[in-house]
């Protein structure tokens, strides 16, 4: 679409900018402010420069939480993206069953995150939960409050339960937007099911798939509420992801300086990765809108 140069359009953006600046810039400056100072109470602050950053970047605690976070995000992405794609491909294309499927699948996305945690906390308990009770009945040694492997498995299955539908809905939106002409052409050429997927559906879905990967990366990288409710970061520190660690540090121990430095580092990592995705996403048609139409 042709766009006109009009700097007055900034006025249209102004209300949104002011609101976001108020909710984002002021708190972010507070964080940056804390990250370069130390305090001995009494509201007296001392300039310490990059000391907290050095301390965080060299601490084993940060490395461990960071590695756990990467492992978690990588695992859920590796499961949710192919699974979501496969389910979207096998969904009905028209009729009442489409609405039913979409509504039922979208349901987990609209459950408050701590309720998701509560649902799984109950469902996986060994005494009153269907999953824990059944697994133990089958002779599997499963207890997510004591067993590291079980805690990880519970959190990963919970995340798959919670978010795979997002990938399904995105892929499905991409699929139904493919004009029928493409399929007709493929049938005339006698293309196999695999060829249709590889040369028609996958390229046409590349854009929504990128959005799916981006959203799932961001949200899994920021996950806090669900592991906090289910495992509380335990057993030990086995499921203490970055956000869980950060809240422990900031609100539990009230170590403002290190927590603020960790916040800034954390935010920068997320932005950096997201920027990389965003650049790839908009490379072909760099418009804020993009949109293959």
């Amino acid at each position: 679409m042709q766009k006109t140069h009009d700097h007055k359009a900034l006025w249209l953006v102004a209300p949104a900018l002011l609101l976001v600046a108020f909710t984002a810039v002021i708190p972010l400056m507070t964080v940056v402010n804390y990250s370069v100072q130390d305090t001995f109470g009494n509201n007296q602050f001392f300039w310490v420069g990059a000391e907290w950053y050095r301390e965080i970047l060299q601490s084993d605690r940060f490395h461990a939480a960071f590695l756990r976070q990467i492992a978690f995000s990588a695992t859920v992405l590796a499961i949710e993206i192919p699974l979501g794609l496969a389910i979207a491909l096998s969904m009905p294309k028209k009729g009442i069953s489409v609405s039913v499927c979409l509504v039922l699948m979208a349901l987990p996305l609209l459950i408050p995150w701590n309720v998701v945690g509560t649902i799984w906390q109950i469902f996986a308990r060994v005494d009153i939960g269907l999953l824990g009770y059944t697994l133990n009945g089958l002779g599997v040694d499963y207890n997510y409050t004591q067993n590291v492997g079980a805690a990880w498995a519970t959190l990963i299955i919970m995340d798959v339960w919670h978010w795979t539908s997002l990938v399904v809905l995105l892929c499905y939106a991409g699929l139904v937007a493919i004009p029928p002409v493409y399929y007709q052409a493929a049938r005339i050429d006698g293309a196999s099911r695999w060829a249709v997927f590889r040369y028609i559906e996958l390229p046409k879905m590349s854009r929504v798939l990128l959005i799916a990967v981006l959203l799932r990366f961001m949200d899994s990288f920021m996950i806090y509420t669900e592991p906090f409710v289910v495992t509380g970061g335990g057993p030990g520190n086995a499921t203490t992801f970055l956000s869980v660690d950060l809240v422990k540090m900031a609100i539990g121990q009230f170590d403002l300086g290190p927590a603020a430095a960790l916040s800034v580092i954390y935010f920068l990592i997320v932005i950096l990765v997201s920027w990389a995705f965003y650049t790839i996403m908009t490379r072909e048609d760099f418009e804020p809108s993009g949109g293959v139409r």
Binding site: A24, I26, M222, Y224, A250, A259, V270, I271, Y278
Partner: peptide, 22 residues
């Protein structure tokens, strides 16, 4: 415009845990 658009999006990417205390 492009910078403002990306800056707005970065706020969607901000971990809520970072903002809780401030």
């Amino acid at each position: 415009d492009k910078h403002i658009f990306f800056w707005l999006l970065t706020n969607r990417m901000a971990p809520p845990a970072v903002f809780a205390l401030p």
